[in-house]
Design a protein around this nucleic acid. Sequence first.
DNA 1: TTGAAAGCGATACCAA
DNA 2: TTGGTATCGCTTTCAA
Lengths: 330, 330
Amino acid sequence: MNIYDIAKIAGVSHTTISRVINSKPGVKEETRERILKILDEYAYFPNSCAKGLASNKNKIIGILLIDVRNSHHTDTAFYIEESFAKLGYASIIAACGWDDSMQDEYLRVMASRNVEGLVLIGSRFQNDNAQKSIKKYFNDKPVVIANGYLPLDNVCGVLLEERKAVSQVVDHLVGKGHRNLAFINDNCTVSANNKQQGFLDGIQKNDLLWNEKNILDIHTRYYVSKEETEKLLREKPEITAIIYSEDILAVGGIKACYSLGLKIPEDISIIGFNDSIYSDISTPTITTIDNRTHDTGEYCSKALHSMLNGETVEPVYHLEPTFKIKESSL
Amino acid sequence: MNIYDIAKIAGVSHTTISRVINSKPGVKEETRERILKILDEYAYFPNSCAKGLASNKNKIIGILLIDVRNSHHTDTAFYIEESFAKLGYASIIAACGWDDSMQDEYLRVMASRNVEGLVLIGSRFQNDNAQKSIKKYFNDKPVVIANGYLPLDNVCGVLLEERKAVSQVVDHLVGKGHRNLAFINDNCTVSANNKQQGFLDGIQKNDLLWNEKNILDIHTRYYVSKEETEKLLREKPEITAIIYSEDILAVGGIKACYSLGLKIPEDISIIGFNDSIYSDISTPTITTIDNRTHDTGEYCSKALHSMLNGETVEPVYHLEPTFKIKESSL
DNA sequence: TTGAAAGCGATACCAA
DNA sequence: TTGGTATCGCTTTCAA
C-alpha cells in the first residue's frame, strides 16, 4: 500500500495525498477530510525510506553510549529518546563500549544511517580520535555531548563541574574534622580525571598534602572496590573518609567497612558520586554528589533540537553538581 | 557525495560501484581494489534511505520497552542491540511506558519506520490490544516477545516459568521450617500474575492456605515496598518469610526489617526476583530467583535473526528461572 | 485547488 | 566484466 494506491482509491493524484499527509495547505477541506478517512481506514503510513530520500530528512537521531551498565547514562539516553519521540523523531541507540577504537566505527554507523543529529553520552567521547571521526562523518550535522566537549563548530556539550564539586566535598569533610582522606577513582575518563583533580585541589587548599598518596585508580566494579578498599584501610587505618568517583564503588566501600568491622559513619565516612539508586539502596544510604542526570538530558535534548532547527547554541553549558548528605557521612 | 560522484571519480558506471559496495561478483579484482581505495579516501557511505527504498530492506530492527527503569529490561534491550549491530543492523529503541494505550502508538511508529523485525520486552505486551496492533502493523514481519507470547503466526516468545519458580521457592522455605509466608507483588502484568499464582500453588501444595491473605499488590518502588512491608509485619509479626516479585521491592523489605529491628535471616527471610545488581548491593545480599536476562536476550536475538532469514521458529521457548541462595534467607 | 513530472540515491535486470 | 535503464515511494516545483 503506497501513496499511489491511496490516490487511486481516493480518486485524486498522489500529490494531493502527499499534501494531506504532511498537513500542507492547498487542499479543499472536504477533500482533505475524505482522504484522512481513507488513510485511517487502510492504516496507511508513508514509507520512511522514500520520505527520507526525497526530503533528505529522515527524522532519526542517533544516541551513542559507552557503557550500558552505567545507569545514569542509560537514563540520559532514554530521557533524550523520550523527548525526541514527542517531536516525531526516532532514536537509533547503540553502545560502543570502552574500546576507544570502536568509537570511529559507531560514529560511522550513525552517519551511514543518515541520522539528523547525534548525542554522545559520556566524557570518554572527549578525545582527539573522536574529534577526528566527528569531523569526518558529522562535519555538517549537529552533535551534542553529555558531560564532554570538543572544539568543533557543530558540536556543543554539557560540562559538569565535577572538579569543583569534589573539591567542595573535601572542604566539607575537613570542616567536619576529617584530616585523613582517600579518593578512589574508576577507569580513566576525562570525567574521572576531573574528579581526581578536584580531590587534589581540595587537599591542597586545606594543607593536607600527604593525602595525595591516598588515590587509587581501579575498575568500575563494586567488588573490585570492596577488595581495594579493604586493602587500603588495612594499610592505612588512620583514614576517616573516602570519596569514590561512582556510587557503585562507594557501595563496595561500604561492604569493605562492614567486613573490617568499621562503623559508618562513626568510624569512617563514605562519599559516592551520581546520586544513583545505589546510594539509596545501600545500608546506610550513601552521601553522594548529584551529577544531575535529568538536567543533563534535558539540556542535551533542547540543545540538539535547537541546532536541528538551525539555531546557534552556546558551545558549552556548565552544570554544577549538588552535594546530597545521606547516612554514610559525618 | 553519492554513488554517481564516486562513479565519475573512478571512471566507471555507478552499477560497478554498487557491486563493489555490496561485495557482489562480476568486478575485475583490479577494478574492485581501485574503487575500494577511492571509497575509503572519500569516506563514502551509501545513503541508507535510498538503499532501503531500492532494496526494501533497511537493516533496522525495533526494540520496544515498557519501563526503562527496569534494568533487566534495558539489559535485554542492549544485549539484542549489540548482537544485531554485529550483523549490520541498527536498532531503533523506544520506551512506551505503562500506559497500555501507548503501545498501539509505538507499534505504529515502529512500523512506519519500516523496521524489518521487532522485539517487545516485557510481559505487559501480552494483551489483546497489542495483539490487534501487531496484526495491524506487523502482519508480515517477525516479532519476538521477551517474557510473553501472542498466538500469531509471525510472533514468537520466550516464556519464563515464573509460576513454577515461585512455587518451588515456597517448597524450599517450607522445607526450612517456614510456615507463615507473605508475597508482595508489583503492578499487574502477566508476569506478576504468574508469580502470584506460583505463590498460591506453593501454599496450596503445602497446606498453608491461611497464607493466601498475605498477598499485597503494590507499586514497583522500593520505598513503597518499605512502607507496606512495615505495615504488614506490624500487623502480622508471625510472618517469617516474604517473597517479592522484584529485587528492588525486596530491598524495601530489607529496609523495613531494619527499621523494625528484625534480624535477617535469623528473624525473617527475604526473597527477591531477578538476580539483579540490587540483590548484591543490598546488605545482606538478597536470595533471589534468577530470571536469566542474558539467556532471554540471547534467545530473542537468535529467534529474530532466524525469522528474518525466513526460517521457522518454535512459537514459544520456555526458560526455567534458577534459585540463587544468598544471605537474606534461611 | 489540483496534477504532471522531475528528482532523491540506491538496487537489479538485461544487454553488450 | 561492465553499463544502461527501470524502479522503489516519496517531495517539490511548476503549470493548469
